[in-house]
Design a protein around this nucleic acid. Structure first.
Lengths: 116, 116
DNA sequence: ATTATTAATCGTAATATTGCAATACATTTA
DNA sequence: TAAATGTATTGCAATATTACGATTAATAAT
């Protein structure tokens, strides 16, 4: 006998495909203006450290650190120790694979003949 | 004199640009596997009604309805009354503008020379 | 008019996310 | 070794999100 517990507030990932969950996780990592701003700043400067972002964005250091962690989790940025600070930059390989993933999703033909 | 209240748990949208907030909102609307699945099903069938999705995805009707509302909020789907049911389909114009928005973001040059 | 069908809304429970102060940790410099 | 610098972690407060049962609303069929 199998029990299925429904816990409110938590996404039912088990009913979706691997691909669907993966796409959603990618979108979620990008679904905050601070993380968009962080990526844009890293791209503009080619690289930056946490404190740069604290100055630039005006969020507290722990908040920036937390957003950096979420971007690191999907691998789109990587950090390397540089003295006392950590140099963050874009992981080009992951960046392009994310780009391809999203491009593939939006390349689906959505022509509407049946309705609307 | 200006008071700035920091309310925990709420995104500080005012410190980011219009564009950054807009992008984040778009990503957020797509940041759930159910909403990915809904879009894919609508695309595959060209159109569908809420109950189709309830059957297909195995989520409760109010849950599907809630996800449909979030997709409607960014305009990527639209619904038209069809008897007792509502026929949902992709809004091609919005779909392509979202596609272009995301493509533009990922078309930034991310070459890394300085670091990592 | 009553019943059936379909979807939206309301209310609620539980987890997730966002943000920051305080603290801990790790490396460099004096 | 001690102080300085920069970042991560912990803990907590508050809002946001996810999910569903119950109800409401709106149209179609009897």
């Amino acid at each position: 006998m199998q029990y299925i517990y429904i816990v409110m507030g938590i996404t039912k990932t088990e009913i979706f495909s691997e691909k669907q969950n993966e796409l959603a996780i990618t979108f979620k990592a990008l679904a905050h203006p601070a993380r968009i701003a962080i990526l844009q700043h890293i791209i503009k400067q080619q690289a930056c450290i946490c404190n740069d972002l604290v100055q630039e964005l005006g969020l507290a250091q722990p908040t920036i650190s937390q957003h950096l962690r979420e971007l690191k989790n999907i691998g789109i940025i990587k950090g390397s120790i540089e003295g006392t600070s950590i140099c963050y930059c874009i992981d080009e390989v992951v960046w392009h694979s994310v780009k391809n993933e999203l491009t593939a999703f939006f390349s689906q033909n959505v022509s509407v003949e049946k309705c609307c």
